[in-house]
């Protein structure tokens, strides 16, 4: 009996040790200021307001310096265990996917169902954006590079890493060489900060955003009171209590709330949870939201909810129906 117990304990421990957090995807995206100031932009009129947006496809087809910088960054990041998503390839894939979805038919003539939301979601995405900007400046006969690389968490919109500065002016070196030198020079500092972000994530949990919204078919709003856990509280306060219990060290902030929505930021979720089979599984915002949904489906709420995923780090729970 003792042997069996020890074996089970050893297996559980090894499974916990082997569990790995969900790896964030990283992509280099040229900054808006770079694209627009270099003429890689498109004009749109939306709701009577003229908007200028970067044209990434045009930029990738024309800008050798940016391509070189992206290639260099990708090679270095792959070496550090983070192969980057390639923006150019991602854009090509999306075009191809759209064409294939439109052309695809079943043997019985059925077509692939795609809602407007599905179409909206078909964009180039990554969990961490490496927002890259540089410009080659002249000072008399000398060239130098201003370099700005920011690591942005796509869901919390926080800058999690960064490196910026100006290279040493040179008369002899070609601008491309100065740019390569800037990438080599700044990437260690950038990765050092990225490592701090990951260390913090492993220590204090993944930071996500969580929003609760309601369909107009929902039978109650978020100000309604319920008897829950021996207390009578507003729905919003019950969600607060649930988050307090389930977040790492009870860390979350309610950024806003009303009868129709609850908005939580800086929600620190654990990286792993124990599944029903006893295995440690990596979790993300969607799985965390699913746990809350499971609570809402039970009395006293007894309501259906839709969990809408926005990448690894943001989820919406829409109360009222699936």
């Amino acid at each position: 009996m003792k042997k069996i117990f020890l074996s089970v304990a050893a297996i559980s421990l090894s499974l916990a040790a082997l569990a790995q957090a969900k790896k964030p995807t990283i992509m280099v995206v040229p900054s808006d200021v770079y694209c627009i100031s270099n003429g890689y932009s498109q004009q749109f009129v939306a709701n009577g307001v003229e908007q200028t947006l970067p044209d990434y496809k045009k930029m990738m087809q024309n800008d050798r310096n940016m391509r070189m910088a992206i290639t260099k960054l990708a090679a270095i990041m792959a070496d550090r265990g983070f192969p980057l998503k390639d923006l150019e390839q991602e854009l090509k894939n999306l075009e191809q996917e759209a064409a294939e979805v439109a052309a695809m038919q079943g043997k019985e003539g059925g077509e692939i169902v795609e809602s407007p939301i599905d179409k909206l979601k078909r964009t180039a995405k990554a969990d961490i954006i490496m927002d890259l900007d540089f410009n080659i400046q002249k000072r008399g006969p000398q060239n130098y590079v201003n370099f700005n690389l920011r690591g942005l968490d796509a869901y919390t919109a926080k800058q999690v890493a960064g490196a910026t500065g100006s290279g040493k002016p040179s008369t002899a070196a070609a601008p491309e060489l100065l740019l390569e030198e800037a990438v080599i020079s700044y990437i260690d500092e950038f990765n050092g900060r990225l490592q701090s972000f990951f260390d913090d994530m492993f220590k204090n949990g993944r930071e996500i955003k969580l929003q609760l919204k309601r369909f107009n078919s929902a039978s109650f709003d978020f100000e309604e009171e319920f008897d829950y856990d021996g207390e009578t509280k507003e729905f919003g306060d019950i969600v607060d209590s649930w988050l307090d219990k389930n977040c790492v060290q009870g860390r979350f902030s309610r950024a806003d709330g009303s009868g129709n929505m609850l908005k939580y930021e800086q929600v620190r979720i654990p990286l792993f949870k124990e599944s029903s089979s006893g295995r440690q599984t990596a979790i993300d915002a969607r799985m965390f939201a699913n746990d809350l949904r499971a609570v809402l489906r039970k009395p006293p709420f007894s309501i259906d909810c839709k969990v809408y995923q926005r990448g690894l780090g943001e989820a919406w729970i829409i109360v009222g129906e699936k």
Binding site: A163, G165, G167, K168, S185, E189, G192, S196
Partner: peptide, 17 residues
């Protein structure tokens, strides 16, 4: 300890943090 920046080079963080 890492290496401070200078002469056009950015700072380099320590390998053991």
């Amino acid at each position: 300890r890492g290496i401070t920046g200078g002469n056009g080079a950015a700072p380099t963080p320590a390998i053991c943090r």
